[in-house]
């Protein structure tokens, strides 16, 4: 049985996954704020965030309720730490593209799927990514 937390709510594995994704999404939005300093790229920054943030948030549902492995949590924490060090808005734009894929790779998901879409939500198994996933090669490895 899942132990009760001090607050009386179930301390489920889902909460751990949601917690790390919420942190990742917050850092991603902060990165976008930094990137917006490049006025000529405002539209591209907006497009990147609109394209990737829903998929990033949907990673909270990856794994079908299984708890994230400690190494998966550590991987996302490192990715968050990396983008929080960025102060150059040009580099921030590059990482707006890279960060979601690094997080998705760590958690075994796919940031191309919108929130609530089939694909990777609920019960998604990283060992069997959707045939249509653009990152199928990334998830399975292609060596």
């Amino acid at each position: 049985m899942v132990p009760l937390s001090a607050s009386g709510r179930y301390a489920t594995c889902v909460n751990e996954r949601e917690r790390i994704i919420e942190r990742a999404a917050a850092s991603y939005r902060a990165l976008a704020d930094l990137a917006e300093a490049i006025e000529d790229e405002w539209q591209y920054v907006t497009d990147l965030v609109e394209a990737y943030e829903p998929g990033l948030l949907a990673l909270a549902d990856v794994g079908g309720g299984r708890p994230p492995e400690p190494e998966q949590v550590a991987a996302v924490e490192e990715a968050i730490a990396e983008i929080e060090l960025i102060s150059d808005p040009h580099k921030a734009i590059d990482w707006l593209s890279t960060f979601p894929h690094v997080v998705a790779l760590a958690l075994g998901g796919d940031v191309h799927e919108p929130v609530g879409a089939g694909g990777n939500s609920g019960g998604y198994d990283a060992s069997e990514p959707d045939d249509d996933s653009p990152f199928r090669a990334l998830l399975l490895g292609d060596r």
Binding site: E71, A74, A75, E78, A81, L105
Partner: peptide, 9 residues
């Protein structure tokens, strides 16, 4: 080590 931790796969 940072990058090794970031890419567990």
């Amino acid at each position: 080590d940072v990058w090794r931790r970031m890419f567990p796969t």
